[in-house]
Design a protein around this nucleic acid. Structure first.
Length: 568
RNA sequence: CGGGAUGUAGCGCAGUAUGGUUAGCGCACCAAGCUGGGGGCUUGGGGGUCGCUGGUUCGAGUCCAGUCAUCCCGACCA
């Protein structure tokens, strides 16, 4: 491409609405242009990057034996009613009627559509397993689109679905997809982590997220400093505690604790480690039908992880409860304890099961119990992991320590089982001629989000720094002075040779000054800019490596060979 | 959906408090010339329903009401 003819509208100033580096630079460098909230046009450079990512995904999917399809973007609402998700997805589903008044939705994800495609077409175990995917525009009417391509309403996603006769076979495919996704991200040149994730209300036995590590990531991850373990904070686990504080000596007793409501105060009042105090967190659990107050108990040194709490009580959501509501249930905020507490549902963190020497609220204003042995709790008490992992906690798989980092979720794979196939009646006949629902897996990857993720991870104060695999053009031939015939001649010759060699090359043949072109090259972020300028008089051109931010002199006669060598 | 802010040329902004010539500035754009290694200079140009609707007024970018849009914080996010 000749830059003099290219549509690459770069801008000196960032749009005032942009906050994230990816949003700022992709806009300034002429990759994307916003149309409305959460809607973006991709300009030529943006489209080229998208295609590169798509190509890599397609190659890895082909290698993994998945087949590409393309499902219609507009999907009949009946399918969503059939699966029951039309309510669940709520306002994120953009609905509309056609001229015959039939209701449709713009697909936010395509489980229903894919199951619908396969059911009644695949009806024998002999036709399984099957892995179908597409790379397609999706639409989710997000309550709050933001961060440019990172959280847009319309976006491009690779979504794959696999169909199996058994959970064992699903496990095999799940692992294969994890490996394939890993290769995709490695090829893109990204620093990432595959982490354990919350499966959400959908359930399923396994769920992993692919996280590109970047400070601007919206997810908090707990990662091990020694091994590969990583998990979304919502699902993170830790090893058994090794250092248990010395236990306070006290017989069971009721103690006056005037005004001592917080764990911190309680600890200093009794001079005990918060480990031996019992924290009570009351929430209102919202169910599909009805709601109730649930009190979660955990050690004072731990904090409640809300997603784990939601899963533990099977609620759709947890909301805060007012002190008045608690009082109405006979609960005394600041003094809530588990003993003889039968007016509300309670759930205990597994770590307090059978704990002794505990201090807990007495369900009476200004009183706590000391020397409590929680083995007195009824057999039927519910225990679950409720704690949130903290930095410094032990890794659950090795001797390492966990620390927090931020990640951008660019992929999510999980084992669906029969969650969709059963309600949608998608079945096959097994070896015994008996009908069974497909066992399914689903594998998503945010393709347009990956464009932003690359820049979040690879940029500096001057602009984008594309990786070799994602760059819109790998090599930029910059003619310093377009009036210099010698410079033009060399550039033209290199341009032709590189094109013939199949290299993605662009030539800056604009009638602009050196500085302008240099700034532009840095902003757009071509991995290699070959500066053909005044040094050519001495037989020298310069290689500007964007990622390394270095300039290297190269004899002009060796330019082509050295470019090919640089590409590798 | 709660809280906050902003809409003036393609982009970034001033002007609005206290209504009053022809609505300004920088960048970008067009023309000519100079310049040619870090977004260069000079001269001359083009480009505006001041988000929209209604109201107050002799007169509204400016005041009032409504409305739409966009962004930020939070809630939400298979």
């Amino acid at each position: 491409m000749r830059m003099s003819q290219a549509f690459i509208p770069t801008e000196k100033e960032a749009p005032k609405d942009a906050v994230l580096p990816s949003h700022i630079y992709l806009t300034r460098a002429g990759f994307i242009a916003q149309v409305a909230s959460g809607l973006y046009n991709l300009m030529p450079l943006g489209k080229r990057v998208l295609k590169k990512i798509e190509t890599i995904i397609n190659e890895e999917m082909a290698r993994a034996g998945a087949q590409e399809v393309e499902l219609s973007f507009v999907t009949p609402a009946e399918l969503w009613e059939e699966s029951g998700r039309i309510e669940k997805f709520g306002k994120e589903l953009l609905r509309f009627r056609d001229r015959k008044e039939n209701l449709f939705v713009l697909g936010p994800t395509h489980e229903e559509m894919m199951v619908n495609l396969v059911r009644n077409r695949v009806n024998s175990y002999k036709q399984l397993p099957l892995n179908l995917y597409q790379i397609k525009t999706k639409f989710r009417d997000e309550a709050r689109p933001r961060f440019g391509l990172m959280r847009a309403r319309e976006f491009v996603m690779k979504d794959g679905y696999s169909f199996h006769t058994s959970y064992e076979d699903l496990d095999r495919e799940f692992d294969a997809m994890e490996a394939a996704y890993k290769r995709v991200l490695e090829r893109l040149g990204l620093d990432f982590r595959i982490v354990e994730a919350d499966s959400g209300a959908i359930g399923g036995s396994g769920s992993k997220e692919l996280m590109v590590l970047a400070d601007s990531g919206e997810d908090t991850l707990a990662v091990c400093d020694r091994c590969e373990y990583g998990a979304n904070i919502e699902a993170a686990r830790r090893s058994e505690r090794r250092e248990i504080p010395e236990a306070p000596e006290a017989d069971f007793n009721k103690f006056a604790t005037p005004g001592i409501k917080s764990i911190e105060d309680l600890g200093s009042f009794f001079h005990v480690d918060p480990y031996y105090t019992l924290k009570a967190v009351a929430k209102r659990a919202i169910y599909e039908e009805g709601d109730e107050v649930v009190v979660f108990f955990l050690r004072g040194c731990d904090d409640l992880q809300e997603v784990k709490a939601v899963n533990a009580c099977g609620a759709l959501d947890l909301v805060d409860v007012s002190e008045e509501e608690l009082s109405a249930l006979g609960l005394v905020p600041g003094f809530i304890g588990p003993l003889d507490l039968d007016t509300v549902r309670t759930i205990f963190d597994a770590d307090v099961k059978g704990a002794a020497n505990m201090i807990c609220g007495a369900n009476e204003t200004d009183y706590h119990f000391v020397g409590v042995d929680l083995s007195v709790l009824p057999e039927a008490a519910q225990y679950a992991a409720l704690y949130e992992v903290k930095e410094g906690d032990g890794c659950p798989v090795c001797d390492g320590k966990l620390s927090y980092t931020k990640g951008i979720e660019v992929g999510h794979i999980f084992k669906l089982g029969t969650v969709y196939s059963a309600p949608l009646g998608a079945q096959f006949l097994n070896e015994n001629g008996k009908a069974e629902p497909f066992v399914m897996g689903t594998y998503g990857m945010g393709v347009s989000r990956l464009i932003a993720a690359v820049i979040e991870q690879h940029h500096d104060e001057k602009g984008c720094v594309w990786t070799k695999a994602t760059a819109p053009y790998l090599v930029n031939l910059m003619i310093s002075n377009i009036k210099d015939e010698e410079q033009v001649a060399l550039a033209e010759s290199l341009y032709a040779s590189l094109q013939a060699a199949g290299v993605d090359v662009i030539m800056d043949d604009r009638k602009e000054r050196f500085g302008f072109k240099a700034k532009d090259a840095e902003l757009v972020g071509y991995p290699l800019t070959v500066i053909i300028g005044k040094e050519l008089a001495n037989g020298i051109v310069q290689f500007f490596d964007r990622a390394e931010d270095t300039k290297t002199d190269v004899p002009s006669s060796e330019a082509f060979a050295r470019i090919m060598e640089w590409i590798g």
